[in-house]
């Protein structure tokens, strides 16, 4: 039996890892920075405090990992869901390149931003 290569196991691991990271981290971050602070319920921390938070190398590395994983999670789901919803599975290769390409671009941007 010839073994057919598939990228799906690796994509699925990135998707799952991203799903866990997104579940554990995103709600609180969106709640704080996206809702409570802009609405004035909480005060914005000073820029010096936020810069200090982002300063340690492990924090920056972790942030890049979080961004890459979350973007791959989103890319994987958007790819499959758009194909199921719109019935465009025959364009899978193109859609996959678009979705995962976007995730890689976002990850590159994150590296440029934080280093």
């Amino acid at each position: 039996m010839s073994r057919r290569r598939t990228a799906e196991p690796y994509l699925w691991l990135l998707f799952s890892g991203g799903g866990v990271v997104a579940a554990l981290l995103l709600p609180v971050l969106v709640l704080l920075f996206g809702v409570l602070m802009p609405l004035g319920v909480l005060d914005w921390p000073s820029t010096t405090h936020l810069t200090a938070l982002l300063d340690p190398l492990p924090v920056r590395l972790a942030l890049v990992a979080v961004i890459v994983l979350c973007l791959f999670h989103a890319a994987h789901r958007i790819r499959h869901t758009s194909e199921e919803l719109l019935g465009v599975a025959r364009f899978d290769l193109f859609i996959a390149l678009l979705c995962y390409g976007g995730a890689i671009a976002g990850g590159t941007l994150a590296v440029l931003l934080l280093f």
Binding site: M1, E8, P9
Partner: peptide, 14 residues
């Protein structure tokens, strides 16, 4: 493994 580890086998499931 070879019949399950395929796009149209387990990886087709969402």
């Amino acid at each position: 493994f070879d019949m399950l580890n395929l796009d149209e086998a387990v990886w087709g499931c969402t």
